[in-house]
């Protein structure tokens, strides 16, 4: 794998962690402020994609095997369905809130929305980066 410039290398490696943190913030505060699972997940994925473009797909794959992205994608989808079916089991209906509400405080009050945001954030981050990894990895 040919070496790209040092500037690109350093900038990407310094920037990516902040992108991960910002993406996690968007996901976890999605019920309180603009953001949410989809948007935060895409920001996390863009951090992974930045590493893949600046370094190489292989370097990212060494960090996190692509197989794990695929497992995360399908597992979170299964968990989403499980949460939906949990609503039926609890007698509230498919994907209805069955967890209940907490008090406004340090913990999220809208527990159901919070949980769904986390699941969707993980799913979108895994899915979007998996698509790009495969497309980047094609031209080798």
């Amino acid at each position: 794998m040919r070496h790209k410039t040092d500037i690109l290398d350093v900038a990407a490696r310094k920037l990516a962690p902040y992108m991960f943190v910002f993406g996690l913030y968007l996901v976890t505060y999605g019920d309180l402020s603009p953001g949410g699972g989809f948007q935060g997940g895409v920001v996390i994925a863009s951090g992974i994609i930045l590493l893949a473009i600046a370094k190489s797909v292989d370097a990212v794959e060494e960090l996190i095997p692509l197989r794990r992205f695929a497992v995360a994608e399908t597992t979170t989808f299964g968990l989403l369905l499980a949460v939906g079916i949990g609503g039926i089991v609890a007698g509230a209906g498919f994907l209805a809130d069955f967890i209940g509400r907490g008090a406004i405080g340090p913990l999220p009050a809208a527990r159901f929305v919070y949980a769904l945001n986390i699941l969707i954030g993980a799913k979108v981050a895994a899915g979007a980066s998996l698509i790009c990894m495969h497309l980047f990895g094609e031209e080798r």
Binding site: G30, D31, L32, S33, P34, G35, G36, G37, D97, R101, G102, A109, A110, R111, F112, V113, L116, N117
Partner: peptide, 14 residues
């Protein structure tokens, strides 16, 4: 209804 202060989240997840 949903507990989410962000009304967009309350719509798309509630």
């Amino acid at each position: 209804d949903t507990g989410a202060v962000n009304l967009v989240a309350s719509i798309y997840l509630g």
